[in-house]
């Protein structure tokens, strides 16, 4: 008999099945590999197929594990109640801050991208002192930028400030 599946169980089932699908997907992608002729004794597809099979099998095993009611026990070494429903709003803000950094970095330069990212993450984590945060973000980004470009000679995109700050 299958026990009644809780909301958490449904999430876990979705996760487990997506793993199974990942395996199928890898196998499908590998089957389309363009292989140079007569390259080697072992086909370059053999190992990837094994990985795909393994992934799907583990996915199926996890589905059964969840159906038997063996849910995940989150690590106890992190703060916060693991059994509360996830707060997707704060998560989305955080993801947006990271995404913005990815997009802006090479367009607007490191200082702008990092300042906004720092500020956005602090906001997602509940800080509401907008101006003070902005100051700290700018200081953080500036210090990192200068210690990397001047101190370590690692180039970071300068964006708007190009020319102004010199190279």
């Amino acid at each position: 008999m299958i026990p009644k599946i809780s909301k958490q169980g449904k999430g876990e089932l979705a996760f487990a099945s997506s793993l199974f699908l990942l395996g199928i997907f890898v196998a499908w992608d590998v089957s389309k590999m363009e292989i140079p002729q007569g390259s080697s004794i072992v086909s370059p597809q053999t190992f990837p197929y094994m990985v795909a099979l393994f992934t799907s099998l583990v996915g199926i095993a996890l589905v059964f594990e969840v159906l038997r009611g063996r849910y995940a026990t989150p690590d106890g070494d992190e703060p916060g109640d693991p059994f509360l429903p996830a707060n997707f709003k704060t998560m989305a803000i955080l993801a947006a801050a990271i995404g913005l950094h990815v997009i802006l970095l090479e367009i607007a330069g490191y200082v702008v991208a990092a300042t906004l990212c720092f500020w956005g993450v602090a906001f997602a984590f509940g800080s509401r002192k907008y101006l003070k945060d902005l100051g700290i973000s700018l200081a953080f980004a500036g210090i990192v930028y200068f210690s990397f470009t001047k101190g370590l000679n690692i180039n970071l995109p300068s964006g708007f400030f190009e020319g102004m700050l010199g190279k």
């Binding site: 990815v102 720092f118 984590f125 953080f140 990397f148």
Partner: peptide, 13 residues
């Protein structure tokens, strides 16, 4: 909030 802002930004760097 500053801690994770710092970790996140530095990780991206």
């Amino acid at each position: 909030h500053y801690l994770y802002a710092g970790i996140t930004t530095f990780a991206l760097l």
